[in-house]
């Protein structure tokens, strides 16, 4: 899949935005992920980015594989990231994550059969006073119970 014209323009612009083209790798990877139908960054996308940005593929690939917010495999329409770090674990974050997997019949990091859900356990999201909480795509949902989380996701 080749990038859309808008994405190509975006990448070119980001390459001008910072002191070096290399700094544009992180924002451009986000863009590539957003454009991907499976919400991931594929090797083809990395190769296309490398050409557009005139950077070695390996530099982009290193960045892709270092940061956890870039998906290296397909992710459901709703990427549900449940914090299981210390304060959330103390307040039922882990149980909530387990519950969601059961409820949507999906293993962690996999896509539910209807393509809607991927459940991940993630590290601290900086919302410890509202534990347990989850991030669904870009948004935080805080002060949850397991049941509320399920309802919220079903209603999305």
């Amino acid at each position: 899949m080749a990038f859309s014209q808008e994405t190509i323009e975006f990448i070119k612009k980001e390459c001008q935005r910072y002191e070096t083209r290399r700094s544009a790798i992180l924002p451009c990877l986000y863009r590539a992920q957003k454009e991907d139908p499976n919400n991931q960054v594929t090797p083809e996308a990395v190769a296309e980015m490398a050409t557009l940005m005139e950077l070695p593929e390996v530099q982009i690939n290193e960045v892709l594989h270092f940061y956890t917010m870039y998906n290296k495999k397909p992710v459901g329409k709703l990427h549900v990231q449940v914090c299981t770090n210390i304060s959330c674990s103390m307040n039922g974050g882990r149980e909530m994550a387990e519950h969601l997997c059961k409820e949507f019949n999906v293993n962690y990091e996999e896509v539910s059969s209807d393509g809607r859900y991927t459940i991940s356990r993630v590290e601290c999201l900086g919302s410890c006073d509202t534990a347990p909480m989850m991030q669904v795509n870009d948004k935080y949902h805080e002060n949850l119970t397991k049941e509320e989380a399920v309802k919220l996701l079903k209603d999305m």
Binding site: A47, P56, N61, E62, H65, F66
Partner: peptide, 21 residues
């Protein structure tokens, strides 16, 4: 020539080339 990189992090880090090149 920039073929090699270290991918992933922590004790999962691995040397490799992009896309098996």
């Amino acid at each position: 020539t920039n073929e090699l990189g270290i991918f992933n992090r922590g004790d999962r880090s691995e040397i490799g080339t992009f896309d098996g090149k």
